[in-house]
Design a protein around this nucleic acid. Structure first.
Length: 493
RNA sequence: CGGGAGGUAGUUCAGCCCGGUAGAAUACCUGGUUUGGGACCAGGGGGUCGCAGGUUCGAAUCCUGUCCUCCCGACCA
């Protein structure tokens, strides 16, 4: 039945690709490393975006839009940031094409149209934004400046995977300026909390909040906070980051403000972002060998209704019930519903199709059901089917959607919790990574050298130092040097 | 960027070694019968064989280049 989708056991990578393509989320494009997000996938992104956008606005942020291009001189102003991204920047060098004199009908880059200064296609927007903020901020009265933008960015990746790592992707980036260090740090953690709230309560993906080690930190940041999620194959995925940028960008772009005492000081900055990568996380956290499994709260279609009938008479009776009563009631209850009465496809085909696409609830309604005043309700997460009375059906569906949301979160949560393994020896460390997989909580001596060595030996990186981490004396799992706390290691996407 | 595999109908693939009028299944269209887990019968339409060169009387097939995809590495603040 599900022969179209490679099973996870057979080939996890292919399974992932199959889900993306066959659930109609996205396609490869003619451009290397770039994807086409299809309407169903984009609808999912729009739902995610709308929820996040509201959360940002509820925490005082406003949206704006900054240019795609960053002059190279601006880009290089904050040295560490520029260095960090240098290897993966697309660069615009010319502004004109012309007809190839040697090859009619073909175009070549016009060598006479070279730009005096190259333009970097933004891999992130700190540079252009801080250059702009310089003109917007004079006094403490202009602060805090709380701006977000929804945009595309380009990072020239060697190896790409739909949603997880593409050369161009969609995201939001928040860029804020504050009068005090304390306030900027509070903003950083506030937005981390917003991300965790969204990913756990809307996407139903449990996350660990933590801080990155200096090695894994955003280039140009003082501290990088992150939320880390665990995928079904036991690999970790960074689902969002929030950076405390200190005064690095303020200094690089000369952004000063006068405080109440009329003293000049550099402002304090944060930036934070989540991207279409979240869709990759969503897929790998919940989906199964039959296809996508979507949490009801962000599913583009929450309920699909499939009529089962013989002849026009039965169809008319079902139509009347569905269009006249069920759909209006569901819509009134805030449920997104699709009635698929397309006569070209048989019910069985539709069942398989909507399972593949991860629609949380399916209602099948036939003539027999009408006689009994019931409907067959199937849930995507457990594949259970039950008949429910048509009286009170909308309320039952609303409750069921909520149950599904809770259930898939719990399932992912249990998987995550049982895949955090405390280990104290190198032997266990390696065995856990290779066998059980998941997060390994181990002592680390705090040095970048040890972190590098472990990465080299096992391909595992320190995903984060969890927030409010328990302090506990121990010995580094690799070097045996003293350590004060355990950190989370994992192989990661 | 290295190593391997691949690109032929909307899709999955055969044909290529050994050059000679482009194939199957499925999807699609028309008509009919159907409809409770991927329906059936009959008829029909659809492909510059990724793209560009070359060899040849003749290229999906041989040669060169190039683009794209997949797998494994390297890379990934």
């Amino acid at each position: 039945m599900s022969k179209e989708i490679t099973s996870r056991a057979d080939n996890y990578s292919e399974w992932y690709n199959d889900i993306v393509v066959k659930a109609d989320l996205a396609d490869h494009s003619a451009v290397r490393g770039c994807m086409v997000i299809k309407p169903y996938g984009y609808a999912l992104w729009e739902n995610m975006r709308d929820v996040l956008d509201k959360m940002f606005k509820d925490t005082g942020h406003v949206n704006a839009y900054f240019p795609l291009f960053v002059p190279k001189s601006l880009f290089e102003a904050e040295e560490k940031n520029a260095e960090g991204f240098a290897k993966e920047c697309a660069v615009v060098t010319h502004y004109r094409l012309k007809t190839d004199p040697d090859n009619k009908g073909k175009l070549i880059v016009d060598p006479a149209a070279r730009l005096e200064e190259e333009l970097v296609v933004r891999p992130t927007s700190e540079a252009i934004i801080w250059n702009t903020y310089k003109g917007w901020i004079q006094s403490y009265r202009d602060l805090p400046l709380l701006i977000n933008q929804w945009a595309n960015v380009v990072r020239w990746e060697m190896r790409t995977r739909l949603f997880l790592r593409t050369a161009e992707f969609l995201w939001q980036e928040g860029h804020t300026a504050h009068a005090t260090k304390q306030e900027a740090i509070e903003e950083t953690t506030r937005m981390l909390d917003v991300y965790a709230d969204f990913v756990e309560n809307w996407m139903a993906v449990p996350v660990v909040k933590g801080v990155k080690t200096p090695n894994e930190r955003f280039a140009g940041a003082e501290d990088t906070y992150c939320i880390e999620a665990l995928m079904q194959d036991g690999k970790a995925l960074q689902a969002g980051t929030s950076h405390f940028l200190g005064q690095n960008f303020a200094k690089a772009f000369e952004v000063k403000f006068s405080d109440k005492e009329n003293k000049l000081d550099y402002v304090w900055a944060t930036s934070w972002g989540v991207s279409t990568r979240l869709i990759g996380a969503l897929i790998m956290a919940h989906s199964d060998d039959e296809g996508l499994v979507l949490p009801p709260r962000i599913a583009p279609i929450q309920v699909v209704i499939v009529p089962i009938y013989k002849g026009d008479e039965q169809k008319a009776a079902i139509d009347a019930k569905v269009k006249g009563e069920i759909i209006p009631a569901l819509k009134a209850a805030g449920v997104t519903v699709k009635y698929d009465d397309n006569d070209n496809a048989r019910p069985g085909w539709k069942f398989a199709e909507y399972e593949k696409k991860g629609v949380p609830v399916r209602i099948a309604l036939g003539a027999r059901d009408l006689d009994n005043n019931v409907a067959e309700v199937a849930r995507r997460d457990t594949k259970e089917k039950n008949s429910y009375s048509l009286d009170g059906l909308p309320a039952r569906i609303v409750a069921l959607l909520d149950e599904i949301q809770q259930n898939i979160y719990k399932k992912a949560r249990t998987f995550r919790d049982t895949h955090i393994t405390r280990v104290d020896t190198w032997d266990e460390f390696v065995k856990t990574l290779d066998g059980k997989t998941g997060f390994v909580a181990a002592h680390w001596d705090g040095t970048g050298e040890t972190e590098e060595k472990i990465k080299e030996l096992t391909k595992a990186t320190i995903r984060c130092i969890p927030l409010n981490n328990e302090q506990e004396a121990g010995k580094c799992v690799l070097t045996g040097n003293p350590s004060t706390q355990r950190v989370l290691f994992a192989r990661a996407y």
